[in-house]
């Protein structure tokens, strides 16, 4: 409950992606994207999915999958997946 990743996890030594529902009020989108843009990483990508909230991967699966296949997968393959 004292979690503050901006202070404790600002450097991540692997590819780092945040794919956030634009209307997320449970884990507010602005805070998530701000944190993502704050992280130092070998590869970083921060994006919002329109018309979705906290459960973007369930409510807008096509858009979420597109992000995974187009953005995450190519980077992960290069890095060994």
């Amino acid at each position: 409950m004292r979690t503050n990743l901006r202070a404790t996890a600002d450097k991540i030594d692997t590819a780092f992606f945040v794919i956030q529902g634009r209307e997320d009020v449970v884990t507010p989108t602005k805070a998530a994207i701000d944190y993502c843009e704050h992280v130092e990483s070998p590869h970083r990508y921060c994006n919002e999915i329109p018309d979705s909230g906290h459960f973007a991967f369930m409510t807008t699966p096509a858009a979420f999958l597109s992000e995974l296949t187009d953005k995450v997968r190519p980077v992960a393959i290069v890095r060994g997946a």
Partner: peptide, 13 residues
């Protein structure tokens, strides 16, 4: 190989 966050928590406060 990669981390993907969604519904990403930044700061609990």
């Amino acid at each position: 190989a990669a981390y993907v966050g969604t519904g990403q928590v930044a700061s609990w406060k």
